[in-house]
Design a protein around this nucleic acid. Structure first.
Length: 873
RNA sequence: GCGCGCUUAGCUCAGUGGUAGAGCGGCUGCCUUACACGCAGUUGGUCGGAGGUUCAAAUCCUUCAGCGCGCACCA
């Protein structure tokens, strides 16, 4: 048996073990297994992405669930893979090629050649995040790794499109969509994020046609769209303007156009808010969703003045043409000023939709797109609202329900090249929706599908759908899904609908939403802020187990996480603590995998530890059903550090150093029994160190991974003994406190005296253990209370004879302070008990408890007062 | 504007009706024969404010404030 190093060195363990596990194919899921199935599909990361702390959190949780399921004897499938991430990947490749000077625009290469370059990029960079997940210890079934652009997967996507088209749920239409002028594609509503923008509200006048000196004043944030205005709208109920409805106004821009070409109608529309601005609205049907609707209601012409790249076109007039939207805004305002139409500019803050990817304002734009009317919406909504599909934390189900209630058709076409091509073919005016080309003279739709239109099939398309595969039979529906609440609409909701539509069943039974990781200042982690640490650096520094445990311990359910590297350091420290606890056991000889403390004479401390282990196992059981991952980590941390190390090991030293001790075998058995269980309980969180210790100590000959989840029924102990141990610990705690108050260090070999509680007679062994816990020279019994500092303790009154060191004044002060505290505690209970209302209404067991506390405080006080008398004379 | 969440020790957070907790930090003392990635002790909170329910409120209700998030066609 190799000797354990003084400190745990993760780098010597992790890669070696991971290789062993994967070479042995420990994570390969067998659909033919008779064991009950457990499955998770990974939220596929962007194929060209790199690991972030968010991924670490998310995948560690999945790994915890998967590893625990294996210990529970399940057949586990954790299915990994990556996403082609249309816009993101295409943008990155295009940018790189531009930077290398190979192209100015992707048009330079043409569609086919550009796609070849993207595939090349994918082959080169696509595996990085997968390798990083392996470093983390992720126990995925790598033999089943999928990519959303795999041929089989693509076939699923096309088939679903054709099917939904046939069901008339997919349709093509010319509508107002969110247009990203940088990526030059349409976006779905979900890809637009509203941001507050500080700008100006411009007030300008327009003359009413044929009425000299009659003007309307309009407030707008977008003067650059004035050339695209095709009407002026007022509310028909507005007494100020109602009479003008039906007349015309002269649009001020572009000024070079003859006046009759700038004549636009004044219309009445309820949409106009009387209170806002001047109550007069310019209507630009081509560049504003609300105006578009007004335009439809009034059959207004649509006049486009901004092109697909966000540049002003010729309709905007000579002063603006070619300018970017934002430049055009100031230019248009300038123009209005010169023409004398501008009344004022005032600072104004409004909400503007931004493209999530390109981080520029989206331009509402009229275009021909494909839309999906969501399928299976009713079932998908009720499955969550009735709690059959559970969300953790539960409150996200409200957010989901609200979105499901207000479903808008999904714009699924993208004007990109990288993605699944839309299976629709054209010849002249004919159109066909089918996977194969109808013939050589047919031209395929040039658009691709939104990436989420492929990911929403992930839970079953990865398992061989549309075939009825053994995988689907065994592992669908999946058990748990772990993801971030930011993609609840993008992905979770849509997967539920696709699951019902194509499998007739929900895709997963539970969804756990992680929190967002923020830095110490509360900012989101991002590459541009430079506050996003590289998980691989953290693994190198603290080990994968340290990173996993440290991060999970501070990841409260449902709340954002304030990340601090200090926490990861603590994770490493904990790993080292565990390592050393085992190192303490190792020199005593090989561990016994079948150790059973029940078969041996034991010290009370063994029973105390077994009692705590039982409580821990029950607690973890409860916490796992609620997905309380950070509290599970806390509970394990506390057990290992406080119960096993601080208490048990200190008392086990007596047995370990004494080969002839009658309780030696029992203490060894307890150590092995408890370590065997605590390593297994910890394994989901810290897979590497627990495996290494398990095998090195010889707690098992096979890997820990399938060694069985500890059951609390296996733990047997004597609770009377455990109580004795608790008294001993409490006595030691009192002694330490007493010594600490005199500023005496542990290294000074002091002698304590114990004046035992009448009737009790502590054994020499227990006095020895007490001395060990107190780290003092000895504890001796005394028949007469000495004149020395004293503290009341469960076993009796503990004295610290200080010979010449004693300062009576100091001792008096100390006693008085403690008497005051006792008095306060007693008074609190007395007050409660003497309140007649309370005495009448509180439950008897509470009253009993309060009486006990009152009694104990009184007794303690009496002892302290006796002691005080000794020092007052 | 509507909805949701948060506010507890210097920091990060547990604690859903009955004596306010943990880790870190601070301070004091220790290289005590598993561990200085450690050990012992200690400091530190009128549980955001105000009302209410209750014998009893950090905990339940109402309301206010601050912060965060989601949804929303006020130009």
């Amino acid at each position: 048996m190799p000797e354990l190093a003084p400190a745990y060195e993760p780098s010597k363990v992790e890669d070696r073990l991971y290789l062993e596990w994967t070479n042995r194919q420990d994570y390969r899921a067998n659909p033919q297994s008779t064991k009950p199935g457990y499955s998770i599909v990974i939220p596929p990361p962007n194929v060209t992405g790199i690991l972030t702390l968010g991924h670490v959190l998310n995948n560690t949780i999945q790994d915890i669930l998967a590893r625990r399921a294996r210990l529970l004897g399940r057949e586990v499938l954790w299915l990994p893979g990556t996403d082609h991430a249309g816009i993101a990947t295409q943008t990155v490749v295009e940018r790189t090629l531009k930077k290398e000077g190979k192209i100015r625009h992707r048009d330079d290469l043409g569609r086919e050649e550009f796609l070849r370059q993207v595939w090349q990029w994918k082959d080169k960079h696509g595996g990085i995040i997968i390798q990083q997940l392996k470093k983390l210890g992720a126990s995925c079934d790598w033999s089943r790794e999928r990519f959303t652009m795999d041929p089989a997967y693509s076939a699923c996507v096309q088939q679903v499109f054709v099917d939904l088209f046939k069901k008339k749920l997919i349709y093509r239409g010319r509508r107002m969509v969110n247009w990203c002028p940088v990526s030059r594609t349409a976006l779905s509503d979900e890809e637009v994020i509203m941001k507050e923008q500080k700008g100006l509200l411009y007030h300008f006048r327009v003359p009413v046609a044929g009425q000299k000196d009659r003007f309307l004043t309009i407030a707008t944030t977008r003067p650059e769209t004035i050339p695209g205005d095709t009407a002026i709208a007022v509310n028909p109920k507005d007494p100020r303007y109602a009479s003008l409805i039906g007349q015309f106004a002269i649009r001020p821009l572009p000024p070079e156009l003859p006046e009759d070409q700038r004549r636009i109608p004044i219309i009445g529309d309820e949409h106009v808010d009387l209170e806002f601005g001047t109550g007069v609205l310019k209507v630009t049907p081509a560049h504003d969703p609300a105006d578009f609707l007004i335009g439809q209601r009034h059959q207004l012409p649509s006049l486009e003045v901004i092109d697909e790249s966000g540049l002003m076109n010729t309709h905007a007039g000579s002063a603006l043409v070619g300018l970017d939207r934002t430049q055009a805004r100031t230019a248009a305002a300038e123009q209005l000023k010169e023409l004398g139409w501008l009344d004022k500019e005032e600072p104004y803050t409004n909400q503007v939709g931004y493209s999530e990817r390109a981080d520029v304002p989206v331009e509402p734009r009229l275009s021909e797109q494909w839309f999906l009317r969501y399928p299976s919406t009713e079932r998908s909504r009720t499955i969550v609202s009735t709690g059959k599909l559970r969300f953790f934390p539960e409150r996200w189900s409200k957010v989901y329900d609200h979105w499901m209630e207000n479903l808008q058709d999904w714009c699924i076409s993208r004007q990109l090249w990288w993605g699944h091509r839309i299976p629709v073919w054209y010849r002249g005016d004919e159109m066909r929706c089918q996977i194969e080309s109808p013939g050589t003279d047919w031209r395929q739709d040039s658009d691709v599908l939104d990436t989420w239109f492929s990911s929403w099939l992930w839970p079953f398309a990865t398992m061989g759908w549309p075939e009825k595969t053994p995988e689907l039979k065994k592992f669908y529906p999946t058990t748990d899904l772990v993801t971030g609440p930011d993609i609840i609409f993008f992905w979770v909701a849509r997967m539920i609908m696709a699951g019902f539509e194509y499998m007739g069943e929900l895709p997963f039974r539970n969804v756990y939403f992680t929190g967002l990781i923020r830095d110490a200042k509360g900012r989101k982690l991002s590459k541009s802020l430079g506050n996003s640490p590289d998980p691989l650096d953290l693994i190198a520094k603290y080990g994968a187990d340290g990173l996993r445990f440290g991060l999970l311990r501070i990841a409260p359910q449902g709340a954002d996480i304030r990340y601090d590297e200090k926490q990861i350091e603590e994770g490493r420290n904990f790993a080292n603590k565990l390592w050393n606890a085992c190192r303490f056991r190792q020199p005593q000889g090989p561990s016994d995998p079948k150790a059973n403390p029940a078969n041996h004479a034991r010290t009370p401390f063994c029973d105390f530890l077994l009692e705590k282990l039982d409580a821990l196992e029950k607690e973890l059981e409860r916490l796992y059903t609620h997905y309380e991952f950070s509290q599970i980590a806390q509970a394990l941390y506390g057990f290992v550090w406080d119960e096993f190390c601080a208490r048990f090991i200190e008392t086990a030293k007596a047995d370990f150093l004494n080969p002839s001790s009658p309780t030696r075998a029992g203490t060894l058995a307890t150590a092995d029994f408890v370590l065997s269980r605590v390593l297994r309980l910890l394994h989901p969180y810290m897979p590497f160190i627990t495996e290494e210790l398990w095998l090195t100590l010889g707690l098992g000959t096979e890997t820990i991974q399938f060694s069985g989840w500890p059951r609390s029924e296996e733990v047997r102990w004597d609770s009377a003994q455990a109580k004795q141990a608790a008294f001993c610990y409490a006595t030691a705690d009192a002694g330490r406190k007493l010594r600490g108050e005199f500023g005496l260090s542990g290294s000074q070999k002091l002698k304590f005296l114990l004046f035992p509680t009448p009737g009790s007679k502590p054994s020499p062994e227990s006095l020895q253990t007490l001395a060990k816990l107190l780290q003092c020279g000895s504890v001796e019994l005394t028949q007469t209370p000495p004149k020395a500092p004293m503290t009341p303790a469960p076993w009796g009154e503990l004295y610290l004879p200080l010979e010449g060191l004693l300062d009576p004044a100091k001792e008096r002060a100390r006693l008085e302070k403690e008497i005051t505290a006792c008095e306060a505690a007693r008074a609190r209970e007395t007050a409660k008990l003497s309140d007649p209302k309370m005495a009448a209404k509180a439950p008897p067991e509470k009253l009993e408890e309060w009486r006990r506390i009152e009694r104990e405080a009184t007794e303690r006080m009496a002892r302290l007062q006796e002691q005080l008398k000794l020092f007052t004379t």
